[in-house]
Amino acid sequence: MSSPSSHALEITRLHFRYQGRGPNDPGFELQLPSLTLARGEEMLLIGRSGCGKSTLLQLIAGLVDPNSGTVHVGGQDIHALKGAARDRFRGRTVGMVFQTFNLLQGFSAMENVLVALLMSDVPKAQWADRAQSLLRSLGIERLDARAEELSVGQQQRVAVARALACRPTLVLADEPTASLDPENAVNAVRVLRDACREQGAALLVVSHDPSLEAHFARKERLDELMKRRAAHDSTREGASA
């Protein structure tokens, strides 16, 4: 059951092991003792490539199940929900922005945002207004242009609009600037932050790009978070000895 919480995200003793598929894919282990993000808070999570940043976002979105631990989004343990209930909850509560934006090809900018609303419980009468105002506020004027007809920068804005369409509690951005040149990367982060702030959504950005650190008041390194776990474990072992 969902309970009122001041946190948009609350991770407790999360453990996920990926076995890997062979010598070229050795697998990895992700262990986080705790991580919280207040409602409306912004945070940058830095980590090297392949350390499990994207997997962490998938764990938070409930797309992958952990071996142990809990992930609460807006007070709801997302992994306690099963099947369609979890999908519905994700659609309503979590917005995601990807490195390659993952817009639906063949769909217009407007339709890409409307699809997100279709999966939500937002009344249909509000869909068009909400999609239009979001897209326009992000500088998209050609609402009926197909995704593939838009520039990279415009695609990124449409992806942001889609992530925010259902007024989510939490927006997860996976390497949102990796496909952009430095100038556009700065703009993209600004757009993302402004939009989330305007909608009151917490924002968790994961990236391997240290240049983004300047834009975020709160930044963490995934390997340091993991070390804290290791230190915590060794302290506990010492105490028990």
Binding site: A61, A84, D87, R92, S120
Partner: peptide
């Protein structure tokens, strides 16, 4: 598959 994955992220259930 990519379209399916996107729809799932947006909240579409497997049955849908």
């Amino acid at each position: 598959r990519r379209q399916v994955a996107i729809l799932r992220v947006l909240g579409a259930s497997q049955a849908r």
